[in-house]
């Protein structure tokens, strides 16, 4: 059963919810695109229906909501370590199924990798309520069906936005109070076929042929083509790497903070160790490392592909490097290599 809403009743629900929750959704920031007179579609806080931007894929993903680019871990006063307080409001995120799945991928790293849970991640993640946006058409670079991230059933509320007609399925009773409208028959739909279909490589085949895949010539062209700018990893909803930084405040050197900031395996410095040594200096090697993480390493560790098929890496690459194409090349190479 679903509830039919109009813009007014939807806005009213947001208003009610905003007392207890911060509400995030894709938004359009006018004039904030990199190029002049272009907009930036990204995640931001919203307060009404008209703030939500659905006509374009967001350049940045909703991972910022639970994993901010810069996150202070400690404030230092003299030698005291003080953990920053956080807002006690909950978090509602409007997201498409691929992005909703990306949260589960981040969970594996921050909550399940190794013996410890990352408390800074957990304290935000625990607040999250999934308001999933129905997505049946996708965009031209989406391949979520291939990665198995086209469905997300564990939502709190599911929404169909059909121009100004809004239908929702409130699965989590906690939210029933906010949504009132006509009851209608409603079955959430998920995209079943993208414009792009990608065959992911068989990871057992890779394991058996690891050196072959690693030393394959397919990586070489990216040493020349890639500029190691990191856009692909920054926009990726599942990239989770960070570096720690300690600073003291210029105006009061006795105080300072320790924070973590997103890092990228594509960008210089990621593997620098003492003595000026670093690994994967060639950009082709970095490409291999990134791609293999998305489609192989992670799956070996956690049993599920890291990449959710959102296609953002392809959208943002200034050098027109297609991750999707590389994945197909790997699959091809693995299949051919194995038959040899």
């Amino acid at each position: 059963m679903g509830i039919e809403l109009d813009v007014k009743s939807f806005d009213n629900a947001l208003k009610i919810l905003s007392k207890k929750y911060k509400i995030f959704a894709p938004v359009r920031l006018k004039g904030k695109g990199s190029f002049s007179d272009t907009d930036l579609v990204t995640y931001g806080e919203i307060s009404s229906y008209k703030d939500i931007e659905l006509s374009e894929k967001s350049r940045y993903s909703p991972k910022e909501v639970i994993y901010p680019i810069t996150q202070t871990l400690f404030y230092f006063t003299e030698d005291e370590y003080k953990e920053p307080e956080i807002d006690d409001k909950g978090i509602i995120v409007f997201l498409r199924p691929c992005d909703a799945n990306s949260y589960l991928k981040l969970d594996n790293i921050f909550l399940k990798n190794g013996p410890y849970e990352d408390n800074y991640y957990k304290r935000l993640r625990d607040k999250v309520k999934f308001f999933v946006i129905e997505c049946t058409k996708g965009f031209s670079t989406c391949f979520c069906v291939s990665t198995g991230s086209n469905k997300f059933l564990d939502y709190d509320v599911f929404f169909r936005f059909d121009n100004d007609k809004i239908t929702c399925d409130v699965k989590n009773d906690e939210f029933s109070y906010a949504f009132s409208g006509k009851e209608v028959e409603f079955t959430p739909e998920f995209i079943e076929k993208n414009e792009i279909e990608v065959k992911l490589p068989d990871i057992d085949k890779i394991s058996q042929n690891l050196e072959y895949v690693f030393n394959h010539e397919l990586w070489d062209e990216y040493t020349k083509r890639c500029i190691a700018c990191g856009r692909c990893t920054v926009s990726c909803p599942t990239c989770s790497c960070f570096s720690m930084q300690d600073i003291f405040y210029k105006d009061n050197p006795k105080c300072g903070e320790r924070r973590r900031v997103w890092a990228s395996c594509m960008v210089d410095g990621f593997t620098d160790v003492a003595g000026g040594h670093s690994y994967r200096q060639k950009y082709g090697e970095r490409m291999r490392f990134k791609v293999m993480h998305k489609i192989y390493d992670y799956k070996k560790r956690f049993g599920t592909t890291m990449c959710v098929g959102c296609g953002r890496c392809d959208d943002v690459c200034p050098e027109y490097i297609s991750f999707i194409k590389i994945v197909s090349k790997v699959t091809d190479a693995v299949d051919r290599g194995e038959s040899k």
């Binding site: 004039g31 904030k32 695109g33 990199s34 190029f35 002049s36 930036l40 990204t42 350049r59 940045y60 680019i69 700018c229 990191g230 856009r231 920054v234 926009s235 997103w262 990228s264």
Partner: peptide, 14 residues
């Protein structure tokens, strides 16, 4: 405005 163009995260904006 080249810095804006180069920034992967939109830390620089217009």
């Amino acid at each position: 405005g080249e810095c804006i163009l180069k920034c992967p995260t939109s830390a620089w904006t217009r």
